[in-house]
């Protein structure tokens, strides 16, 4: 589903954000990407739907080359859902309109059909009663669940999560993770940048550990949590698991 082959990326002439990264996410697979801050994990996931350009290598999404200048990027992006660290709901639109906008403008759905889909998904994330509110009236956890519903409204073939719980107060993290766990169990293809090792342990098939722009470790969950092969991954794990 997602293939990342020898990807290189620079910010400016001197800083290399991604160094020869190669990995893949198969259909129905849940892959967690972790690593210390500044390791390039967010950059990597943003390259998958070309929110960030790459300077070397290839990214292939459902058979379509993302970094080909001829690729219709808006169309490709509409098929992959993305959830951001800071939710990025559109503050000037009501919740229901946040969910309908792209359905109507990108997929060309009729407003009434878009509303039906939107309400179904809001119900699923437990926020049906908030449809008429504005994003600012919701808590962080609620906003992030709306953001997930907004992405799902496009019937994506895969979902990308960029640190979806990092900006949340601790008591709101689980309500978001619950939605993600359900999604994973239903067989959604997911690439998740997160520090939530509990989530990784519960539903991930594979865990990727990145450091300084490199993929240091790419292992089955059991192997990763059993005995990480690299020192750097061991150190990282011991730091975040000791609490």
């Amino acid at each position: 589903m997602i293939e990342i082959n020898h990807v290189n990326k620079w910010y400016g002439p001197s800083f290399q954000a991604l160094k020869d990264c190669t990995t893949s996410v198969a259909k129905g697979e849940v892959v967690v990407v972790c690593g210390p801050s500044g390791s390039g994990k967010s950059t990597l996931i943003k390259c998958v739907n070309a929110l960030e350009p790459i300077q070397g290598g290839d990214i292939i999404l459902d058979g379509i080359k993302v970094n080909d200048p001829k690729t219709d990027l808006p169309k490709l992006r509409s098929r992959v859902g993305m959830v951001f660290q800071h939710f990025e709901l559109f503050p000037h639109l009501r919740i229901i309109d946040n969910l309908c906008l792209a359905q109507e403008k990108v997929l060309g759905r009729k407003h009434d059909d878009a509303v039906v889909t939107a309400m179904k998904l809001l119900d699923r994330v437990g926020l049906k009663d908030h449809a008429k509110k504005f994003p600012a009236e919701l808590s962080g956890g609620q906003q992030q669940r709306v953001a997930i519903a907004r992405a799902l409204a496009m019937n994506p073939i895969a979902m990308l999560f960029d640190e979806p719980t990092s900006a949340l107060d601790p008591e709101m993290i689980s309500e978001v993770l619950d939605v993600m766990v359900d999604l994973a169990r239903e067989g959604m293809t997911m690439m998740v940048v997160t520090h939530e090792m509990g989530f990784a342990n519960k539903v991930a098939d594979r865990v990727i550990f990145m450091d300084r722009g490199e993929i240091v470790e790419d292992a089955k969950k059991a192997d990763f949590f059993g005995t990480p092969r690299s020192d750097r991954a061991q150190k990282f794990l011991s730091k975040i698991l000791q609490h």
Partner: peptide
């Protein structure tokens, strides 16, 4: 993040600006 979120949903540059 706002235009990024709009792009991620598949909106074109013009749509992201407009809406």
């Amino acid at each position: 993040g706002q235009p990024a979120a709009a792009s991620a949903l598949g909106l074109t540059y013009a749509q992201s600006m407009r809406y």
